[in-house]
Computed example of a mutant assay.
Amino acid sequence: MMQDAATIVDRLRAAGCVFAEEEARLLVTAAQTPADLAAMVDRRIAGQPLEHVVGWAEFCGLRIVMDPGVFVPRPRTEFLVTQAAALARSGAVVVDLCCGSGALGAALAAAVGPIELHAADIDPASVSCARRNVAPAGGRAYEGDLWEPLPSTLRGRVDILMANVPYVPTEAIRLLPPEARVHEARAAIDGGADGLDILRRVAAGAPHWLAPGGHLLIETSEMQSPQTVEIFARHGLIPRVASSEAWDATVVIGTQPA
């Protein structure tokens, strides 16, 4: 028997879902059968991210395919895409590193037109998801640790390198909501002792892959941005900080000298 919307709203609200009415509407729309709906509501009440339950996330106006365990793109990261779009041109060579679902690359392609898009992640589930999301833009996704799986022909040719690296300090992970702490890949969240371990590795490798005048864009926290600027400069990139109160977002942009 199909649960009525009011019952679903009540169950979601009791489980702590702040936007229970909107979530109930999305669940009802996504369900194929009453049994599907019941299972989906149970999964959501058990704490799974809504995006994993319905199978997609909204990002930059796109529907991004989502699978269980894959990092859900945050609204604040749309600010990184807007910064990349301001720097990109049609036909640019773009790499989405630590790509998760591939949302950043897919969104940038939608914003600026045809690009040569490559994405990479160490998590197999994320790569499977990313392949579906970047395919409409002609993109390719690779499985491996940072640069390792990328074609060597990209060295020195990358115009835009986006990397939404994990930047939560290890000890702070316990403070995250269960949706992230329990249901997303640890590798997509854990940035090491100070949250900057992966960022350091990306910044160190970026100059070998960026074209002259190319740009590295990394999301970080406001508190971590001064250290990020220092790391970028140490590796020969010209850094600047872009921030947005509206998005509650901070992005550090490093430019390869021409």
Rank of each mutant, 00 (worst) to 15 (best):
M1A: 14
T7Q: 13
V9W: 05
D10Q: 11
L12E: 03
E23P: 08
E23H: 05
A24L: 12
R25D: 07
R25C: 03
A31P: 10
P34A: 06
D36R: 12
L37Y: 04
L37R: 12
L37N: 04
L37S: 04
M40W: 06
M40Y: 00
D42Y: 00
R44G: 08
R44Q: 13
R44M: 11
G47V: 13
E51L: 07
E51I: 07
H52R: 09
V53P: 13
V53T: 12
W56K: 10
A57T: 02
L62A: 09
R63W: 03
P68I: 07
P68H: 03
V70M: 00
V70E: 05
F71E: 05
P73T: 04
P75V: 04
R76Y: 10
T77Y: 13
E78L: 06
F79M: 12
F79A: 13
V81W: 11
V81I: 15
A84W: 02
A84G: 07
A85P: 03
A85I: 04
A86V: 06
R89Y: 04
S90R: 14
V93D: 02
V93T: 15
V93C: 14
V93L: 08
G100M: 01
G100Y: 08
A103S: 10
G105Q: 08
A106Q: 08
A107M: 04
A110K: 13
A110Q: 15
A110M: 09
V112M: 04
G113A: 10
P114Q: 14
L117N: 02
A120T: 11
A120L: 05
I122D: 04
P124W: 02
S128L: 00
S128F: 00
V134D: 01
A137I: 02
A137Q: 07
G138I: 09
G138F: 12
R140G: 12
E143W: 03
G144I: 13
W147Q: 00
P149W: 00
T153K: 09
T153G: 10
L154Q: 09
G156K: 12
D159K: 05
L161M: 15
L161T: 08
M162T: 00
V165W: 05
V165D: 08
P166Q: 07
V168I: 14
P169S: 07
A172K: 15
L175S: 09
L175D: 15
L176F: 07
R181K: 11
H183D: 06
A185T: 00
A188V: 09
A188E: 02
G191Q: 12
A193F: 05
A193N: 11
D194Y: 07
L196Y: 11
R200L: 01
R200E: 11
V202F: 05
P207M: 05
P207D: 05
H208S: 15
W209P: 07
G214K: 14
L216A: 01
M223K: 11
Q224H: 11
F232P: 09
H235N: 14
L237F: 10
I238T: 15
I238K: 14
R240T: 15
V241Q: 08
S243T: 15
S243M: 09
E245I: 01
A249I: 05
V251K: 03
G254N: 10
Q256Y: 12
A258N: 15
